[in-house]
């Protein structure tokens, strides 16, 4: 191969700006932004709108930084999975070193600026979240135990606590409940994905529950976690974080979610293959709506509370 053709091949894979942005996992970032925003707005504290905007921005950047560090560490398994093979590092458009540099720089930036903009409790929680996602989940648990999603899910559950801490400067029962809701939601959400992305985790040797304990066990785990999640989600309606509106939303959504989990548990692989994993895909889509509407209802309750609205007074 001539020097010219070597150079040409190198140019063809040269990164665009959007490749660096893709390292920040923008779709995961939207979930982080939304849950952090609910935590911040539901908190009983007044924040200047611009400071609130900055807080959410820095939390989002911190979440993105941990995504870049995750892609740096997991480039080898990303290359083996159909779902992730086109990410910037396995596709050859960004080097691992560039992703590492971007992740470390944005981690430091986001933590320091969140501390300066709001308070150091929120900044400390953000730093711990990045550490938990990158070191505890990505480097340690993901390739070691089928409980990776269960324990690692904590990293994705911290944003509402960070948003709450940014507004109030502390942690409270309400922010812990929001953490618990996201924490318990994560396993059924990801296990449903693992059921219909059949071969991806097998190919990458990631010890997902589907690989280590089999698919029937995964179906049983989805049902068990959904039952625990439903109990917590409905119970939240009776705490200071919830209220009648939240309770109505939670009752409807959890009935649908339990029905979906029950359907998944009752099926076997033959049924699932026959209809192209319709129940598993439907449950996965419902799980996205589930979290969005629960947090939306928490936000609505906080807004009504702040507006002085009292249930039963009308």
């Amino acid at each position: 191969m001539s020097d010219a053709s070597l150079q040409s091949a190198q140019y063809e894979t040269e990164a665009e700006f959007r490749d660096y942005f893709a390292l920040l996992k923008p779709r995961v970032m939207t979930l982080v932004v939304f849950t952090a925003l609910v935590g911040l707005l539901a908190a009983p504290a007044d924040m200047h709108p611009f400071v609130a905007f900055c807080a959410i921005l820095f939390i989002a950047i911190g979440g993105g930084a941990s995504g870049a560090l995750n892609m740096w560490w997991d480039a080898d398994i990303d290359a083996r999975m159909r779902r992730t093979a086109r990410r910037p590092i396995p596709a050859g458009r960004v080097t691992g070193e560039q992703a590492l540099g971007l992740g470390v720089a944005l981690s430091g930036f986001s933590v320091v600026f969140l501390g300066l903009a709001t308070n150091w409790i929120a900044a400390g929680l953000l730093a711990f979240t990045i550490f938990f996602y990158v070191v505890v989940y990505t480097m340690w648990l993901k390739r070691w135990t089928p409980q990776n999603i269960v324990i690692g899910g904590a990293a994705g559950a911290f944003p509402p606590m960070i948003g709450w801490a940014a507004a109030t400067g502390g942690i409270s029962i309400e922010s812990l409940l929001m953490f618990a809701l996201t924490f318990l939601w994560t396993p059924p959400h990801f296990w449903a994905l693992a059921l219909f992305m059949r071969s991806d985790y097998d190919d990458a040797n990631v010890p997902m529950l589907t690989v280590t304990h089999g698919r029937p066990a995964t179906r049983a785990h989805i049902l068990a976690y959904t039952v625990i999640l439903a109990l917590l989600a409905v119970a939240m309606g009776f705490t200071s974080a919830g209220g009648p509106l939240y309770l109505a939303v939670a009752l409807a959504l959890n009935a649908m979610f339990l029905r979906g989990a029950w359907a998944i548990w009752k099926r076997d692989e033959a049924d699932a293959e026959a209809d192209g994993y319709a129940a598993e895909k439907g449950f996965f889509k419902l799980s996205l709506l589930y979290l969005f509407l629960h947090f939306g209802a928490l936000l609505a309750e906080a807004a009504l509370d702040r507006a002085g609205f009292v249930w039963g007074a009308i």
Binding site: E14, E16, F17, R18, Y20, F50, V51, C54, L57, L116
Partner: peptide, 24 residues
């Protein structure tokens, strides 16, 4: 085109950074 895209993206990111720090 790709390099221009990167340069423009970086310029906008830096401009946004300045605006955020100034506003804060």
């Amino acid at each position: 085109r790709r390099r221009r895209g990167r340069n423009v993206g970086l310029a906008l990111t830096l401009a946004a950074f300045i605006a955020v720090i100034f506003g804060l």
